[in-house]
């Protein structure tokens, strides 16, 4: 860390103290091994420096590019699906429901399900979507179908559903927290000025909750990059994601350089996608507030 730069930063004393533990841990336990990994990706299996691993990604027949794009696409779908669930529910819990007991109870129920562990949470979808799962059995009983629907389980649908299931509470919590701190009087004022509930939500609540929504979007996107369980347990034959492809290179092919290359590519493309997602989301949320209504609220955000 350059002392000159630190000195230049305003209020540097306490900021340095607050940043040091985390940045130092990252430097020792994260940056150095990752640098090693990046170096490894530039070698071939005999240890010679080579760009062959990166070049091999361009070989479309290998399908590696498809897997990368699928991973990023699924990640974005998971964000959208989580938003559809989390936005209304967070608003309901933060601003509509009158009983703090119900509010706490619902949040508690959602958190407690995590204790079942990711494996059980994922496997449990087989019992719902399978040939003899809850949905097929109920539909058969009701006489709505005569043959079980095979396509429910083992495919992108089931995998995306489980990924969403496993992460959407993160977005719910951050959105809830940032909606909770919005002053009720601001929303009331908007309504007094003639805004419909929907307009008040989109033009006032959402822009003010933006930090929570954006950070939540990051939180739900990221696990897709590491997902191994959902694609393998529910994904069927054509839903491979990057994390399994990387694992196979390290564990089964014993091709660490290629595994390292795939990792570097995933980190870079994942970060870029993430920044794009954050940018688009915050722009969209800001755009909401530019329509009509001026709330006259002093902006707390920098």
């Amino acid at each position: 860390m350059s002392a000159g730069l630190v000195k230049n930063a305003r209020g540097s004393g306490w900021i340095t103290a607050a940043a040091l533990p985390w940045l130092a841990s990252l430097l020792v336990f994260f940056a150095l091994p990752l640098a090693g990994l990046a170096a490894l990706s530039l070698t071939d299996q005999s240890g010679q420096v080579s760009l062959a691993n990166y070049a091999s990604l361009a070989d479309l027949a290998s399908g590696r590019l498809d897997v990368l794009l699928r991973t990023l696409r699924i990640g974005v779908i998971v964000i959208i699906a989580s938003l559809c669930i989390a936005l209304p529910v967070a608003y309901y819990l933060a601003k509509v429901v009158q009983s703090p007991r119900i509010e706490s109870l619902i949040l508690l129920l959602v958190s407690a399900t995590f204790l079942a562990g990711p494996l059980v949470r994922t496997v449990s979808w087989r019992g719902i979507l399978g040939v003899h799962g809850l949905i097929n059995e109920s539909l058969l009983q009701l006489g709505l179908i005569s043959e079980p629907i095979l396509s429910l389980l083992y495919g992108e649908l089931a995998m995306t559903l489980a990924l969403t299931y496993n992460v959407f509470p993160f977005l719910l919590f951050t959105t809830y927290l940032s909606m909770k701190v919005i002053d009720d009087r601001i929303i009331a004022a908007a309504r007094d000025l003639g805004a419909s509930p929907a307009a008040a939500f989109f033009r006032v609540v959402l822009p003010l909750a933006a930090p929570g929504v954006v950070t939540g979007a990051v939180l739900v996107f990221v696990p897709t990059l590491s997902a191994v369980l959902e694609p393998e347990i529910l994904g069927g034959t054509s839903s491979r994601l990057m994390a399994t492809a990387i694992r196979d290179q390290f564990f089964h092919a014993h091709n660490w350089p290629l595994g390292a290359t795939l990792t570097v590519v995933l980190i870079v493309s994942g970060t870029i996608t993430l920044m794009l997602v954050a940018l688009v989301t915050s722009l969209a949320l800001r755009a909401c507030s530019h329509y009509g209504l001026s709330t006259g609220v002093p902006s707390h955000a920098k």
């Binding site: 299996q45 027949a61 290998s62 399908g63 590696r64 498809d66 897997v67 034959t237 054509s238 491979r240 492809a245 196979d248 290179q249 089964h252 092919a253 014993h254 091709n255 290629l258």
Partner: peptide
């Protein structure tokens, strides 16, 4: 030659 077998299996999985 595991890397070659992995590459072949990757082609199947990624197809």
């Amino acid at each position: 030659d595991p890397p070659a077998y992995q590459a072949a299996w990757d082609r199947v999985l990624n197809a």
